[in-house]
Amino acid sequence: MKTSILAIAATMLATGALAEPVAPSAVSFNDGAVATSLSGQPGDATRGREIVGTKSLGNCVSCHAITEMSDVPWHGEVGPTLDGVADRWDEAQLRGIVANAKMTYDGTIMPAFYKVSGFTRPGDGYTGKAAKEISPVLDAQQIEDVVAYLMTLKEE
C-alpha cells in the first residue's frame, strides 16, 4: 500500500506535476523583475553556489566578489559585491537580473544568462566559429538555483 502511494507520487512528480520551463523568448519582465520560477520548480541553493563559483557554469565570481565564497579563489571587481544582495533585491528582481540584467540596467556590461536571440555574431560556445544553435548560458533550473543561492546572501 505504502509502496503504491509512493509510486503514484513519483509518477506525478515525473510527469504532470512538473511544469514546463519558460522558454527564454517567453520570459515576462516587469520593471526588470520576473515573478515566477522559470523552471516551475524551486531553486536549490547548494547547486546554485556551485554554479556561481564554477568557471564553466555561471562564473559569477569572475566579476562579483562574495565574502561567503572565500573558498573559491579570484573574485572579480567588475560588478558590485554580492554580499547582502538579498537585502537589496527581492527574489523576482534577482531572477530578472540573472536572466537578463539589461532589463534592469540599460547598457550594463553583465551578460544575459537566459537569452537566445538578438546577438551580434553569436558563436558556437567558445570555439570562435559561428553558432549553429544557441542555448542560454544557463538553463531554467540553473537560473533558479543561482537565485536560491543569492537569496541566502543576507547581511541584515
Binding site: K55, N59, V61, S62, C63, W74, H75, G76, E77, V78, I109, P111, A112, F119, T120, P122, G123, A131, I134, V137
Partner: peptide, 19 residues
C-alpha cells in the same frame, strides 16, 4: 552571446580584476 565590446573591458574596466 556575452554581448561584450572591447570598450566594456578595456575602456570602462581597466584596472579592475576579472577573475
Amino acid at each position: 552571446q556575452l554581448e561584450l565590446s572591447c570598450a566594456n573591458c578595456h575602456e570602462d574596466n581597466y584596472g579592475n580584476m576579472i577573475r
